[in-house]
Nucleic acid binder design. Structure first.
Lengths: 146, 146
DNA sequence: TTTGCTGCAAAGGCTTTGCACGGAT
DNA sequence: ATCCGTGCAAAGCCTTTGCAGCAAA
């Protein structure tokens, strides 16, 4: 199971194990961030979480995302000139980033993992994580006129 | 020749061909940005260019880098929580990013290009550029104690 | 001469931080 | 009861923008 589909119980367990308190805000933020498949921004996570937890603040969202990122549960994607986006799919994979519609599509590829591991080994580099992005036009957008 | 080692004359030609005026500031900025091998930040390019052209401004550096990026002559690397870094090596390759010393090492790999092209083809994605980063510890840093 | 560029300073946007109150353990 | 986390607002940082003077074509 590479894409997390975690229950509240397992989210609570993860937080406690890392030494964090399992507050209702954190649980809500983690639930959305870990289950989302469309690489949301912090702002969008904030908007979603606010629907069920109206008093949550954007600062708390950022702080929680930082915890998740530090522990490798989500991956932060910084694209030039726009907000960071968060990906709960942390296995080696390729992000297909559409420059027109902004959609990010995950592309699972065994060759990617092999290539990454071989490159790290050859360069005597200790890998902790990676990020493989291809920028261009997605299938839908490339059919449309410019 | 993948790593640009361009003369002033060829830089001037590139700028003019794209419809830009070849000002002395732009030439100086391009010269440094295109020849640099260590993925400098805009600030560092500014510092270097200022040595030979003391009145240059950071804004001009950013504007010129934007031109170079838009035309695919350099690649912008945004790392979370730090300034963007610019890479004049734009062929498909892997960036080995050391989390301790900050060094970014280019790793040339034919498999990388193939993987990227195959993934784009499979997903019916029109590729314009890509970015392949591995994060971890470089050869030098991984020997040191934490 | 015309057009576009520079440099300055100010604005902008995203993210982080400080602090006092409140909730989790 | 203790300690950490929250929420608010303010600060921070990198980058972009507006504009008047100036250089390139």
């Amino acid at each position: 199971m590479s894409r997390s589909q975690k229950s509240d119980a397992s989210i609570i367990e993860i937080l406690r194990k890392k030494g964090y308190k399992a507050t209702t805000q954190r649980i809500a933020i983690c639930r959305f961030a870990l289950q989302s498949r469309d690489h949301p921004t912090a702002q969008r996570i904030y908007d979603e979480v606010k629907k069920v937890h109206p008093t949550v603040s954007l600062a708390t969202v950022y702080k929680t995302l930082q915890i998740l990122t530090e522990h490798g549960l989500v991956q932060e994607l910084d694209l030039p000139g726009s907000q960071a986006r968060f990906d709960s799919y942390v296995e080696p994979h390729i992000n297909l980033v559409c420059m027109r519609c902004g959609k990010i599509q995950d592309f699972k590829d065994n060759a990617a993992r092999e290539m990454v591991e071989r490159a790290a080994a050859k360069a005597e580099f200790t890998r902790t994580r990676q990020r493989l992005d291809i920028y261009g036009l997605c299938k839908t957008c490339r059919g449309k006129t410019k």
